[in-house]
Design a protein around this nucleic acid. Sequence first.
DNA 1: GCAGTTATCGACGACCAGTCGATAACCAGA
DNA 2: TCTGGTTATCGACTGGTCGTCGATAACTGC
Lengths: 249, 249
Amino acid sequence: MSPVSLTRPPEPGPPDVAHGTAQPSRHEVLGVVLQVRDDVLHVLLWRRALAPHAGRWSLPGGTLGPAEDLRESIRRQLAEKVDVRELSHLEQLDSRGAPRRVPGERVVATTYLGLVPGHVDPHVPADTRWHPVDALPRLAFDHADVVEAGRSRLRSKLSYTNLGFALVPPTFTMSELARYYRACLGHEVDVTNLQRILARRDQIEPTGDVLRSGRSGGRPAAVYRFRHPTLEVTDAFAVLHPPRVAAPG
Amino acid sequence: MSPVSLTRPPEPGPPDVAHGTAQPSRHEVLGVVLQVRDDVLHVLLWRRALAPHAGRWSLPGGTLGPAEDLRESIRRQLAEKVDVRELSHLEQLDSRGAPRRVPGERVVATTYLGLVPGHVDPHVPADTRWHPVDALPRLAFDHADVVEAGRSRLRSKLSYTNLGFALVPPTFTMSELARYYRACLGHEVDVTNLQRILARRDQIEPTGDVLRSGRSGGRPAAVYRFRHPTLEVTDAFAVLHPPRVAAPG
DNA sequence: GCAGTTATCGACGACCAGTCGATAACCAGA
DNA sequence: TCTGGTTATCGACTGGTCGTCGATAACTGC
């Protein structure tokens, strides 16, 4: 192990970086914006007009401003493609800085996962379109990996958080909810089981309303809503719990 | 969307995201290196010599090199403080870019969690020391938040992955293992339960050896090891599983 | 031996999720 | 209005897992 180099002043520090090469690097933010449309999970992509990778579809994003926080930046970038007020959830995924991930100088990318609830159809620019995640065209740069990271995050968080709230309209029936889950998870979801799990965790509650039957008949469906419109981790979901303390009294 | 900045000649151009100013930003990496020492979780810190925050303890790290991948960079930075060959695990935590997180120009930090197994005592430089995470001094910048993020990640991953392998010596008894878990989780861990859970998940296996009793007597303890020295997620841990397919035959 | 100590094993009970059949509540057409 | 078709909801069974705890095993020192 090399000793502490005293020629190399500690940082992070003010402008006098003096840290080997003080060459700054370019930083961008990228957003994987997902929405379930017609029972199919879609991702928002825009078509590049200029080189490199002209004509390829790519994720919305752009260069981080000099005094901009990361979250602030991704919101600004996304605002160019979609009404960000429609975003029901936004969380950081990861950062990538492989030297050759884009042509030219190295660009570090910090990626975000955004969700749009299923009942809105935001206006998007002409170069922008929703693509089913299961049939994506060839994407620019490493953006296909980023989309996969977003899907994966969504899948797992549906299981141990109340993230479902960000996928669905304000109210919904259990059948509808199961269809949203199916679209994200990629497999069948039993309605009975889903109802019991979410109810037990206090994620959903009935509004009291029922939906009128369609013309094909059938019992009217009860209407539900999510209790909390913000992310909450299902506590005590993991194993190796702390021991139970004897209840007082 | 603003046009491509033509003041930046069309080199093998970076993606023409061309969002606002193309001003680059400084990027650093930070590492939360944790180790259980004498049944207490510790974090590796070094004392800053120069301003800003001279004298404060801070996380190891430094500026990202111009052609360096993030993981490569954190390994290089950590190598100045500890023998990185001792690192049993290294994973990315998150990135932070708040404009005022450090004095002076804005610096984006990408943070990593590193783990050192309990049986080694790496040589560290004079300005560097292990601190119990439960009694930290005031840390520089936002480093206290970063330490907390690292602890939190470790805690949760102990529950749904085999990350324990990175905490412990190559072989161990169940009592020892439980002490490592206790140190990280911050609460009691039942040995019987721990043994059954890890065995059921095929994380650990007995070596066949037993340890001789200490001078206080007691039955000799069986020696175990982790099966796989690399991170694996306990699959089917989450809820909302895909339906069971009928076994063929 | 015997008491003390530590480790391991087995069993009980609670809880929870995956499954499935029974029932409820509606529609449409005869 | 009766009847069959359709969709939603409910209850019950089952298997698996985990938190807990008492019983037993295997050692030390006196």
